[in-house]
């Protein structure tokens, strides 16, 4: 069984209509899972459901074999999940270093080692560690956001469109870093607008349409699937 397994999720926000229908997302240890799909397909919603920000009517979420369906997002953080929202994902008036410290708020042990690891991963952050996160460029801010999430030493890192609004060069670099993170054994679940580049690095890809699983396969297989190419990757 996969490290993260969210199966047959059905539900929506509050008492509103269902957005997800029988949707299943899984990620094994050290694996990069990517959710792609057209606008309004429920990609972000699926990820929020995994993180417990949605009322599920049916389905369950397990992490490392433990059922976490009824836990609050905060409790899931304690269980080893980390979430990087798409927007406002840093503390703008706090320094880079303080942002990282806040990421490790729940930890009572020494966090310096983890912080060094984050700085190794994103050297630019070390350089700017006294600067306020709000003053950084878009790409650097995303690095702070990912770094903050890594400070909890998560087993599963969830990224909601990490490359939204950054330049192609920055995007490539960010993806490189994400691969590096995955190599350390952390599972990654990512929602992406840039489907082609994302599937390139994905071990597993989920194509969602209207809240349902449409295609599920390895990233490579999806890239080569003519139907997926035609409908979702622009030929």
């Amino acid at each position: 069984m996969s490290y993260l397994s969210a199966s047959n999720m059905t539900g929506g926000y509050g008492r509103g209509a269902d957005i997800l229908h029988d949707c299943t997302i899984e990620a094994a240890e050290g694996e990069i899972a990517v959710i792609v799909g057209p606008n309004g397909a429920g990609k972000s919603t699926a990820m929020k459901a995994v993180f417990g920000m949605l009322n599920l009517r049916e389905g369950s979420v397990t992490l490392d074999g433990e059922d976490i369906t009824h836990l609050t997002p905060q409790d899931r953080v304690a269980k080893g999940m980390a979430f990087v929202p798409q927007t406002s994902n840093v503390f703008p008036s706090m320094s880079v270093e303080e942002n990282l410290e806040m990421g490790a708020f729940l930890r009572r042990d020494n966090i310096n080692g983890t912080m060094e690891q984050v700085y190794e991963l994103f050297p630019i952050l070390k350089e700017k560690r006294r600067q306020n996160a709000g003053e950084l460029s878009g790409g650097q801010r995303q690095q702070v956001a990912v770094g903050r999430a890594l400070m909890t030493q998560p087993k599963l890192l969830m990224l909601d469109e990490p490359t939204a609004g950054v330049s192609p060069i920055v995007m490539d670099e960010l993806f490189d870093r994400i691969i590096e993170v995955a190599r350390t054994g952390i599972s990654i679940l990512m929602v992406e607008q840039n489907a082609r580049q994302a599937l390139n690095i994905a071990d597993k890809g989920y194509v969602l349409v209207q809240g349902r699983n449409r295609f599920t396969d390895t990233g490579e297989a999806l890239m080569n699937d003519p139907e997926v190419r035609k409908s979702f990757l622009g030929g």
Binding site: F83, S88, V90, F91, E98, E101, M102, G103, R148, T152
Partner: peptide, 17 residues
């Protein structure tokens, strides 16, 4: 610091525990 974080970005502060 946690107070500043909460004032800066409440949702993210909650996510950070």
């Amino acid at each position: 610091k946690s107070m500043r974080a909460y004032s800066d970005n409440e949702d993210l502060a909650l996510l950070s525990g």
